[in-house]
Protein backbone atom coordinates (compact mmCIF):
# COMPACT_ATOMS: atom_id res chain seq x y z
CA UNK A 1 0.00 0.00 0.00
CA UNK A 2 3.00 2.24 -0.19
CA UNK A 3 1.85 3.57 -3.51
CA UNK A 4 -1.65 4.01 -2.22
CA UNK A 5 -1.97 7.40 -3.78
CA UNK A 6 -2.19 5.97 -7.21
CA UNK A 7 -4.45 2.99 -6.56
CA UNK A 8 -7.40 4.98 -5.34
CA UNK A 9 -9.75 7.01 -7.35
CA UNK A 10 -9.74 10.64 -6.63
CA UNK A 11 -12.89 11.94 -5.06
CA UNK A 12 -15.50 13.24 -7.34
CA UNK A 13 -14.92 10.60 -9.95
CA UNK A 14 -17.73 8.16 -10.39
CA UNK A 15 -16.60 4.79 -9.16
CA UNK A 16 -17.82 1.82 -11.08
CA UNK A 17 -21.24 1.16 -9.64
CA UNK A 18 -20.93 -2.56 -9.64
CA UNK A 19 -17.76 -4.46 -9.71
CA UNK A 20 -17.94 -7.59 -11.76
CA UNK A 21 -17.84 -10.46 -9.32
CA UNK A 22 -14.45 -12.07 -9.26
CA UNK A 23 -12.78 -9.12 -10.80
CA UNK A 24 -10.02 -7.59 -8.74
CA UNK A 25 -11.03 -4.28 -7.36
CA UNK A 26 -9.46 -1.92 -4.94
CA UNK A 27 -9.83 -2.94 -1.34
CA UNK A 28 -10.60 -6.59 -1.87
CA UNK A 29 -7.16 -7.62 -0.79
CA UNK A 30 -8.63 -8.28 2.67
CA UNK A 31 -10.66 -11.20 1.55
CA UNK A 32 -8.98 -13.57 -0.73
CA UNK A 33 -11.80 -16.08 -1.16
CA UNK A 34 -14.84 -14.62 -2.88
CA UNK A 35 -14.75 -10.89 -3.37
CA UNK A 36 -17.99 -9.30 -2.39
CA UNK A 37 -19.46 -6.79 -4.77
CA UNK A 38 -19.69 -3.14 -3.93
CA UNK A 39 -23.14 -2.25 -2.70
CA UNK A 40 -24.97 0.70 -4.04
CA UNK A 41 -26.35 3.12 -1.55
CA UNK A 42 -29.88 2.18 -2.54
CA UNK A 43 -29.30 -1.49 -1.91
CA UNK A 44 -32.31 -2.53 0.20
CA UNK A 45 -29.98 -4.14 2.74
CA UNK A 46 -28.49 -0.77 3.48
CA UNK A 47 -31.80 0.95 4.04
CA UNK A 48 -32.81 2.20 7.41
CA UNK A 49 -35.73 0.63 9.17
CA UNK A 50 -37.42 3.90 10.02
CA UNK A 51 -40.58 4.55 8.08
CA UNK A 52 -40.16 8.30 8.41
CA UNK A 53 -36.43 8.87 8.67
CA UNK A 54 -36.64 12.65 9.09
CA UNK A 55 -39.06 12.43 11.95
CA UNK A 56 -37.02 9.65 13.54
CA UNK A 57 -33.92 11.74 13.25
CA UNK A 58 -35.63 14.63 14.94
CA UNK A 59 -36.79 12.48 17.82
CA UNK A 60 -33.35 10.97 18.27
CA UNK A 61 -31.83 14.42 18.22
CA UNK A 62 -34.25 15.39 20.96
CA UNK A 63 -33.13 12.45 23.09
CA UNK A 64 -29.49 13.31 22.55
CA UNK A 65 -30.18 16.91 23.52
CA UNK A 66 -31.88 15.77 26.71
CA UNK A 67 -28.82 13.62 27.27
CA UNK A 68 -26.46 16.54 26.88
CA UNK A 69 -28.62 18.62 29.18
CA UNK A 70 -28.67 15.83 31.75
CA UNK A 71 -24.96 15.19 31.96
CA UNK A 72 -24.26 18.95 31.94
CA UNK A 73 -26.73 19.36 34.78
CA UNK A 74 -24.97 16.52 36.59
CA UNK A 75 -21.71 18.41 36.35
CA UNK A 76 -23.33 21.56 37.70
CA UNK A 77 -25.06 19.64 40.48
CA UNK A 78 -21.79 18.00 41.47
CA UNK A 79 -20.04 21.34 41.66
CA UNK A 80 -22.88 22.70 43.78
CA UNK A 81 -22.70 19.59 46.02
CA UNK A 82 -26.38 18.95 45.40
CA UNK A 83 -28.22 16.18 47.27
CA UNK A 84 -27.91 12.75 45.76
CA UNK A 85 -31.38 12.64 44.26
CA UNK A 86 -30.49 15.64 42.11
CA UNK A 87 -27.25 13.99 41.05
CA UNK A 88 -29.08 10.77 40.26
CA UNK A 89 -31.83 12.47 38.36
CA UNK A 90 -29.49 14.53 36.20
CA UNK A 91 -27.00 11.76 35.52
CA UNK A 92 -29.62 9.03 35.22
CA UNK A 93 -31.96 10.87 32.92
CA UNK A 94 -29.03 12.23 30.90
CA UNK A 95 -27.32 8.91 30.33
CA UNK A 96 -30.58 7.08 29.79
CA UNK A 97 -31.80 9.57 27.21
CA UNK A 98 -28.48 9.52 25.44
CA UNK A 99 -28.59 5.72 25.45
CA UNK A 100 -32.11 5.65 24.06
CA UNK A 101 -31.06 8.05 21.33
CA UNK A 102 -28.01 6.04 20.35
CA UNK A 103 -29.86 2.73 20.45
CA UNK A 104 -32.68 4.14 18.35
CA UNK A 105 -30.14 5.53 15.91
CA UNK A 106 -28.65 2.06 15.58
CA UNK A 107 -32.02 0.41 15.31
CA UNK A 108 -33.84 2.75 12.96
CA UNK A 109 -31.27 4.73 11.03
CA UNK A 110 -28.48 2.26 10.41
CA UNK A 111 -28.36 -0.56 7.88
CA UNK A 112 -29.95 -3.65 9.37
CA UNK A 113 -29.44 -6.06 6.52
CA UNK A 114 -30.37 -8.81 6.96
CA UNK A 115 -26.80 -9.75 6.33
CA UNK A 116 -25.47 -13.24 6.36
CA UNK A 117 -22.13 -14.83 7.02
CA UNK A 118 -21.05 -18.44 7.12
CA UNK A 119 -20.26 -20.26 10.28
CA UNK A 120 -17.05 -22.00 9.63
CA UNK A 121 -16.93 -25.30 11.46
CA UNK A 122 -14.71 -25.03 14.50
CA UNK A 123 -13.40 -28.54 14.20
CA UNK A 124 -10.28 -29.28 12.19
CA UNK A 125 -9.87 -32.37 10.09
CA UNK A 126 -9.68 -35.83 11.64
CA UNK A 127 -6.05 -35.89 10.62
CA UNK A 128 -5.30 -32.76 12.60
CA UNK A 129 -7.10 -34.14 15.61
CA UNK A 130 -5.17 -37.37 15.35
CA UNK A 131 -1.90 -35.53 15.00
CA UNK A 132 -2.58 -33.59 18.17
CA UNK A 133 -3.49 -36.70 20.13
CA UNK A 134 -0.46 -38.49 18.74
CA UNK A 135 1.82 -35.67 19.81
CA UNK A 136 0.41 -35.78 23.32
CA UNK A 137 0.51 -39.51 23.76
CA UNK A 138 3.63 -40.50 21.92
CA UNK A 139 5.85 -37.69 23.09
CA UNK A 140 4.75 -38.24 26.68
CA UNK A 141 5.58 -41.88 26.12
CA UNK A 142 9.00 -41.00 24.81
CA UNK A 143 9.74 -38.66 27.68
CA UNK A 144 8.02 -40.15 30.69
CA UNK A 145 7.43 -43.81 30.00
CA UNK A 146 10.99 -44.34 28.94
CA UNK A 147 12.21 -42.53 32.03
CA UNK A 148 9.79 -43.78 34.63
CA UNK A 149 12.18 -42.96 37.44
CA UNK A 150 12.58 -39.34 36.46
CA UNK A 151 8.86 -38.95 35.83
CA UNK A 152 8.07 -40.38 39.22
CA UNK A 153 10.62 -38.20 40.96
CA UNK A 154 9.35 -35.06 39.24
CA UNK A 155 5.72 -35.86 40.00
CA UNK A 156 6.58 -36.72 43.58
CA UNK A 157 8.56 -33.54 44.02
CA UNK A 158 5.80 -31.35 42.71
CA UNK A 159 3.24 -33.18 44.81
CA UNK A 160 5.29 -32.77 47.97
CA UNK A 161 5.83 -29.11 47.24
CA UNK A 162 2.12 -28.65 46.70
CA UNK A 163 1.26 -30.25 50.02
CA UNK A 164 4.05 -28.48 51.85
CA UNK A 165 2.89 -25.08 50.59
CA UNK A 166 -0.53 -25.77 51.97
CA UNK A 167 0.86 -25.76 55.50
CA UNK A 168 2.16 -22.22 55.67
CA UNK A 169 -0.75 -21.08 53.53
CA UNK A 170 -3.46 -22.53 55.71
CA UNK A 171 -1.79 -22.63 59.08
CA UNK A 172 -0.73 -19.02 58.95
CA UNK A 173 -4.32 -18.00 58.38
CA UNK A 174 -5.38 -18.69 61.91
CA UNK A 175 -4.91 -20.81 64.99
CA UNK A 176 -6.26 -24.34 65.31
CA UNK A 177 -9.60 -24.59 67.07
CA UNK A 178 -8.26 -26.81 69.84
CA UNK A 179 -10.58 -26.50 72.82
CA UNK A 180 -11.54 -22.89 72.11
CA UNK A 181 -15.06 -23.74 71.05
CA UNK A 182 -15.64 -25.63 74.29
CA UNK A 183 -14.80 -22.80 76.64
CA UNK A 184 -16.41 -19.53 77.65
CA UNK A 185 -15.43 -16.75 79.99
CA UNK A 186 -17.72 -18.06 82.74
CA UNK A 187 -15.88 -19.59 85.69
CA UNK A 188 -17.04 -20.67 89.05
CA UNK A 189 -17.87 -17.54 91.05
CA UNK A 190 -17.84 -15.11 88.12
CA UNK A 191 -20.02 -12.07 88.73
CA UNK A 192 -22.75 -11.33 86.22
CA UNK A 193 -22.46 -7.77 84.90
CA UNK A 194 -24.44 -5.75 82.39
CA UNK A 195 -22.92 -4.03 79.37
CA UNK A 196 -21.65 -1.15 81.50
CA UNK A 197 -19.90 -3.55 83.87
CA UNK A 198 -22.33 -3.15 86.78
CA UNK A 199 -22.99 -6.22 88.91
CA UNK A 200 -26.53 -7.48 89.16
CA UNK A 201 -28.15 -7.37 92.60
CA UNK A 202 -30.88 -9.85 93.46
CA UNK A 203 -33.43 -7.09 94.01
CA UNK A 204 -32.63 -5.30 90.82
CA UNK A 205 -35.04 -6.99 88.42
CA UNK A 206 -38.74 -7.52 88.68
CA UNK A 207 -40.57 -10.58 87.37
CA UNK A 208 -40.63 -10.59 83.58
CA UNK A 209 -37.45 -8.52 83.36
CA UNK A 210 -34.71 -9.47 80.93
CA UNK A 211 -31.09 -8.35 80.67
CA UNK A 212 -28.03 -9.32 78.67
CA UNK A 213 -25.16 -10.13 81.00
CA UNK A 214 -21.46 -10.89 80.62
CA UNK A 215 -18.78 -12.33 82.85
CA UNK A 216 -17.30 -9.48 84.86
CA UNK A 217 -14.34 -7.94 83.05
CA UNK A 218 -15.34 -9.42 79.68
CA UNK A 219 -18.24 -7.10 78.94
CA UNK A 220 -16.20 -4.98 76.57
CA UNK A 221 -14.27 -7.70 74.80
CA UNK A 222 -15.12 -9.25 71.45
CA UNK A 223 -15.23 -12.70 72.93
CA UNK A 224 -17.30 -11.56 75.88
CA UNK A 225 -19.85 -10.10 73.51
CA UNK A 226 -19.84 -12.86 70.94
CA UNK A 227 -19.38 -16.01 73.02
CA UNK A 228 -20.08 -15.28 76.69
CA UNK A 229 -23.24 -13.23 76.14
CA UNK A 230 -25.98 -14.59 78.32
CA UNK A 231 -29.57 -13.58 78.86
CA UNK A 232 -30.74 -13.22 82.40
CA UNK A 233 -34.49 -13.43 82.97
CA UNK A 234 -36.37 -13.12 86.20
CA UNK A 235 -39.13 -15.65 85.71
CA UNK A 236 -40.63 -15.62 89.21
CA UNK A 237 -39.82 -14.68 92.80
CA UNK A 238 -39.08 -18.17 94.08
CA UNK A 239 -36.39 -20.58 92.96
CA UNK A 240 -37.07 -21.97 89.50
CA UNK A 241 -36.33 -25.58 88.64
CA UNK A 242 -36.03 -25.90 84.89
CA UNK A 243 -35.08 -29.57 85.00
CA UNK A 244 -34.76 -32.10 87.75
CA UNK A 245 -30.98 -32.09 87.60
CA UNK A 246 -30.89 -28.30 87.77
CA UNK A 247 -32.58 -27.90 91.11
CA UNK A 248 -30.64 -24.91 92.44
CA UNK A 249 -29.57 -23.30 89.16
CA UNK A 250 -32.08 -20.46 89.17
CA UNK A 251 -32.24 -18.87 92.64
CA UNK A 252 -35.21 -16.58 93.33
CA UNK A 253 -36.39 -17.02 89.78
CA UNK A 254 -33.26 -15.66 88.10
CA UNK A 255 -32.53 -17.95 85.17
CA UNK A 256 -29.64 -17.49 82.74
CA UNK A 257 -29.20 -18.98 79.27
CA UNK A 258 -26.52 -18.58 76.67
CA UNK A 259 -27.65 -15.87 74.25
CA UNK A 260 -26.00 -17.58 71.28
CA UNK A 261 -28.63 -19.41 69.25
CA UNK A 262 -27.90 -23.10 68.85
CA UNK A 263 -29.02 -22.89 65.23
CA UNK A 264 -26.63 -20.43 63.59
CA UNK A 265 -25.38 -18.29 66.42
CA UNK A 266 -27.55 -15.19 66.18
CA UNK A 267 -28.15 -13.47 69.50
CA UNK A 268 -31.45 -14.73 70.84
CA UNK A 269 -32.58 -11.20 71.37
CA UNK A 270 -36.38 -11.28 71.62
CA UNK A 271 -38.36 -12.21 74.69
CA UNK A 272 -42.02 -13.06 74.39
CA UNK A 273 -43.04 -12.19 77.92
CA UNK A 274 -46.54 -13.66 78.02
CA UNK A 275 -45.53 -17.06 76.70
CA UNK A 276 -42.15 -16.91 78.38
CA UNK A 277 -40.39 -17.74 75.14
CA UNK A 278 -37.00 -16.58 73.97
CA UNK A 279 -37.20 -15.96 70.22
CA UNK A 280 -34.31 -15.83 67.79
CA UNK A 281 -35.06 -13.20 65.15
CA UNK A 282 -32.96 -14.91 62.50
CA UNK A 283 -35.07 -18.00 61.80
CA UNK A 284 -37.67 -17.80 64.55
CA UNK A 285 -36.42 -20.55 66.81
CA UNK A 286 -38.28 -20.35 70.11
CA UNK A 287 -37.00 -21.57 73.44
CA UNK A 288 -39.14 -22.21 76.48
CA UNK A 289 -37.66 -20.34 79.41
CA UNK A 290 -39.26 -22.48 82.11
CA UNK A 291 -38.21 -25.88 80.72
CA UNK A 292 -34.51 -25.25 80.29
CA UNK A 293 -34.82 -23.38 76.98
CA UNK A 294 -35.90 -26.43 75.05
CA UNK A 295 -36.67 -25.38 71.47
CA UNK A 296 -40.41 -25.47 70.89
CA UNK A 297 -40.35 -24.12 67.36
CA UNK A 298 -37.94 -23.52 64.51
CA UNK A 299 -34.75 -25.04 63.22
CA UNK A 300 -32.67 -24.87 66.41
CA UNK A 301 -31.78 -28.44 67.33
CA UNK A 302 -30.77 -28.03 70.98
CA UNK A 303 -31.79 -26.09 74.05
CA UNK A 304 -29.80 -23.00 74.92
CA UNK A 305 -27.21 -24.03 77.53
CA UNK A 306 -28.21 -22.89 81.01
CA UNK A 307 -25.78 -21.10 83.31
CA UNK A 308 -26.06 -22.25 86.94
CA UNK A 309 -26.38 -19.20 89.22
CA UNK A 310 -26.16 -18.47 92.89
CA UNK A 311 -26.62 -15.39 95.02
CA UNK A 312 -23.67 -14.57 97.19
CA UNK A 313 -23.84 -13.22 100.72
CA UNK A 314 -23.93 -9.62 99.52
CA UNK A 315 -26.89 -10.35 97.26
CA UNK A 316 -25.11 -10.28 93.90
CA UNK A 317 -25.68 -12.85 91.17
CA UNK A 318 -22.73 -15.09 90.33
CA UNK A 319 -22.13 -18.22 88.26
CA UNK A 320 -21.80 -21.50 90.09
CA UNK A 321 -19.50 -22.66 87.28
CA UNK A 322 -19.19 -22.29 83.51
CA UNK A 323 -21.55 -23.80 80.95
CA UNK A 324 -21.53 -27.59 80.92
CA UNK A 325 -21.41 -27.71 77.11
CA UNK A 326 -20.20 -25.60 74.19
CA UNK A 327 -22.46 -22.66 73.45
CA UNK A 328 -23.80 -21.86 70.02
CA UNK A 329 -24.22 -23.87 66.82
CA UNK A 330 -23.19 -27.46 66.32
CA UNK A 331 -19.87 -28.57 64.90
CA UNK A 332 -18.18 -31.89 64.26
CA UNK A 333 -16.10 -32.05 67.44
CA UNK A 334 -19.02 -31.19 69.66
CA UNK A 335 -19.72 -34.09 72.00
CA UNK A 336 -23.18 -35.35 72.77
CA UNK A 337 -22.95 -34.62 76.45
CA UNK A 338 -25.14 -31.86 77.74
CA UNK A 339 -27.67 -32.15 74.94
CA UNK A 340 -30.51 -30.78 76.89
CA UNK A 341 -30.71 -33.10 79.83
CA UNK A 342 -27.51 -32.92 81.80
Amino acid sequence: MSDSGSTFETPGTQVALEVASGGPSEGDGHRTAVPIPTARLDDPHLQEAARFPRRTEAIIALFLLVGIGGVAAFGAAYVQNAPSWVLALSMGVGLFAMGVGLTAWGKYLMPQGPFVEDRHPLANSRRDQEAMAAALVERTGVVVKRRKLLGGLLGGGMGIFGIVTLFPLLRSLGPLPGKTLFTTGWKSGTYLVDSTGTRIHKDQMSVGGILTVYPQGKENTDRGQAVDQTVLIRAQLTDLVTMKSRANWAPTGYVAYSKVCTHLGCPVGLYEQLLELLVCPCHQSMFNVRDGAVPVFGPAPRPLPQLPLYIDSTGFLRAQRGYNQPVGPGFWERTTEGNGTA
Binding site: G67, S84, W85, V86, L87, A88, L89, M91, G92, V93, G94, L95, F96, A97, M98, G99, V100, G101, L102, T103, A104, W105, G106, K107, M110
Partner: peptide, 19 residues
Protein backbone atom coordinates in the same frame (compact mmCIF):
# COMPACT_ATOMS: atom_id res chain seq x y z
CA UNK B 1 -24.46 1.82 18.29
CA UNK B 2 -27.18 -0.29 19.80
CA UNK B 3 -25.01 -1.88 22.44
CA UNK B 4 -23.23 1.33 23.42
CA UNK B 5 -26.61 2.97 23.72
CA UNK B 6 -27.63 0.10 25.92
CA UNK B 7 -24.57 0.56 28.13
CA UNK B 8 -25.64 4.17 28.63
CA UNK B 9 -29.20 3.11 29.36
CA UNK B 10 -28.12 0.54 31.96
CA UNK B 11 -25.80 3.05 33.60
CA UNK B 12 -28.50 5.70 33.57
CA UNK B 13 -31.06 3.32 35.05
CA UNK B 14 -28.63 2.29 37.78
CA UNK B 15 -27.91 5.94 38.55
CA UNK B 16 -31.63 6.59 38.90
CA UNK B 17 -32.02 3.59 41.19
CA UNK B 18 -28.95 4.56 43.15
CA UNK B 19 -30.13 8.07 43.84
Amino acid sequence: AKTTGFLLMVTGALALLGG
